[in-house]
């Protein structure tokens, strides 16, 4: 049961560091089990490389259960591979066929520079959050949690937006490398909750400004982000953010 019978050709992006030029390198793996996860297949390949004295492929991964958002492979032209609604670590080899050739590249965007091989720097997302993706409430300032009832529909919509894991698949797949889905998910989550109202218009302005400063592209509403998001974050969030942004800029008198 431990070994299977799949033989695969992999074309994997190798790049020594941010400055160096990378290239796709061909590898072969044999006896892959369909029950393996995609990353476990990479473990097998790396074990081969290490014992041969080669450098293993560096890739980001951590929880391996689809929630930390660290894994980030662009597989055969799609972020997180051929299946919808999952991350790379949840992709299993039964989604491929014996003899397949699989191309694996890092997320590509000006705002996500490659660090090494398949690992990219997504700290731009952190900076967008620190520009406004929060509610300013110091520890100890809170009132009783049930003092503000929230309509279930709003709470549910906020939760759906909050499900974002910050993996960056939206940026990776967008033909413009736009981060609108990521940013709008946080803007929406907080805009839908009563606790988020005081900073609502300031927040959206600051977060969009930071997003622009990071060098992400502009959204052209192709919807690829929504289709590829492992957590199914909806395009409605982008519309909501646009609405809030326009209100903030053209209606509200508050400067960001």
């Amino acid at each position: 049961m431990s070994t299977g019978n799949m033989n695969l050709t992999l074309k994997i992006w190798r790049q020594k560091n941010t400055k160096s030029k990378g290239e796709l390198v061909d590898y072969k793996v044999a006896n892959i089990s369909p029950d393996m996860s995609f990353l476990e297949m990479f473990d097998v390949l790396n074990e081969q490389l290490i014992t041969k004295g080669d450098q293993p492929i560096v890739f980001d991964h951590d929880c391996r259960e689809g929630i930390c958002g660290m894994c980030s492979m662009f597989i055969n032209g799609r972020p997180h591979g051929p299946k919808n609604g999952i991350t790379t670590c949840q992709l299993h080899m039964r989604s491929f066929k014996d003899g397949d050739t699989i191309t694996v590249e890092p997320w590509r965007a000006q705002a996500f520079p490659v660090i090494k091989d398949l690992t990219v720097d997504r700290s731009a997302f952190d900076r967008v959050i620190s520009a406004g993706g929060f509610i300013s409430v110091n520890t100890g300032n809170a009132q009783d949690a049930n003092n503000l009832p929230i309509p279930k529909a709003n709470a549910d919509a906020a939760f759906e937006a909050a499900a974002c894991i910050g993996c960056g698949a939206c940026v990776a797949t967008c033909k413009n490398a736009s981060a609108m889905l990521f940013v709008s998910a946080k803007v929406s989550q907080l805009a839908l909750l009563p606790q988020g109202q005081p900073e609502r218009y300031k927040r959206v302005q600051n977060m969009v400004a930071q997003m622009d400063a990071e060098g992400f592209g502009n959204c052209t509403n192709t919807g690829a982000c929504e289709a590829e998001c492992p957590k199914g974050i909806s395009l409605e969030n982008i519309a909501r953010m646009n609405r809030d942004y326009l209100s903030a800029k053209f209606v509200s008198q508050e400067e960001a």
Partner: peptide, 22 residues
Amino acid sequence: NNAARPVKYAVANGQANSKWYS
């Protein structure tokens, strides 16, 4: 938008997630 991705993908499967005209 073109400049936001200076290095292009070797393989990009756009038709899997969006319409060609968009």
